[in-house]
Amino acid sequence: MNRRQFLAASGWAGASLALSGLVTAAGGVQADDPALDANTFHGLRRYARTAFGNIAYVEQGHGAAALFLHGFPLNGFQWRGALPRLAPYRRCIAPDFLGMGYTQVAEGQAVGPDDQVGMLLALMDTLGIASADVVANDSGGAVAQLLLARHPERVRTLLLTNCDTEIDSPPPALLPVIALAREGRFVEEWLGRWHADRTLARSAEGIGGMCYADAANPSDEAIDTYFGPLLSTQQRTDRAHAYAIALSRNALGGTAEALRASRAPVRVVWGMADTIFAPKNVDYLEAAFGNSRGIRRLVGSKLFWPEERPDVIAREAMVLWNTWTPVAMRR
């Protein structure tokens, strides 16, 4: 660890301890704050009309905006635990990507990472958001990095979790999914089977064993909310396949210089038991950003740990958001 990294880590630890005490004393972010159940989440869903389609999103809170970007093949429901914890401090918005969840994609609209960036800009403009704190996971993390690289003025801070990097996109573990998607088989043969057999979904061979540390995940309501929309019509199934196929191209290629030049504070929290994205990504990300606020490694956590550990997301976000200042951004 060089001197710059040591000072950053030391400063982060001090800020984290101080803020943790303040938040706990104020009765704010707590580990036992309840997550939103599916019925409540569905009731909060709204649609923003854009040229990309009607973008489904759930919003809680007021003030400065925070965007929560989900993974594949999930949707905004992934953040049901983080949103109520952070709503007292931010206008928290969890959209569904093009081709995922409940977003109604415009006819002929592509759904690749570049298109997702355009959609987010349109969504932000529609909702009157000049810039946002961004929290992202999995393929949403790739989109977040593209947004930061191409439109740094729209990203105030970035809390990044397990996701694609320029050196690992797509990861080898995703190649069978992409191959099945090209054949039009992935949604039916994987998601369809998991949707029909919850025990299989939570087994070692299912999404549970692959992406979650807790054998009780994903819950029944999560399975319904994630996979139900993608199985509901052939058009939605086709778009889910298009989403997966679009991940075959390394959209992050050539972004390294822009990410190093960015001044937005970036914090990375990584589940070290992830079997999709390799541990080498952590070392790469440690030096990838111009204003890195360090790396936290979560032993035993897998790809979709933000869903299982929303208290960690909330505390890390609060520390990151409270270290941001306009002066720091101008350095």
Rank of each mutant, 00 (worst) to 15 (best):
A142W: 03
A216C: 12
P218N: 07
Y212C: 13
R91W: 14
A144R: 02
R236K: 05
A64Y: 04
L285N: 11
G81K: 02
E166C: 09
K280I: 06
L230Q: 08
G184L: 15
A317T: 08
L123T: 03
Q78I: 11
V187E: 04
N137R: 06
N281G: 12
G43R: 04
A122V: 00
R182D: 00
P306T: 00
G253R: 13
L17K: 11
M318F: 14
M119F: 02
M329Y: 14
L120Q: 07
A216Q: 11
L285D: 11
T325I: 10
D283R: 06
Y212S: 00
V268W: 04
W321K: 04
T237N: 06
Q109R: 01
N39K: 14
A242M: 02
A261E: 12
A287I: 02
D115F: 02
D138M: 03
A136G: 00
A122R: 01
G27T: 10
R293I: 01
R296W: 01
D96H: 02
P73L: 03
Y102R: 03
G141T: 06
A179T: 10
A87N: 08
G140C: 07
R91D: 13
T157G: 05
M210Y: 09
Y89M: 05
E286N: 10
L175Q: 07
P176H: 09
C211L: 14
V319P: 09
G14H: 10
A264D: 10
V269M: 05
S232C: 04
A9D: 12
D32K: 11
V282P: 12
P265T: 11
T165H: 00
T157I: 13
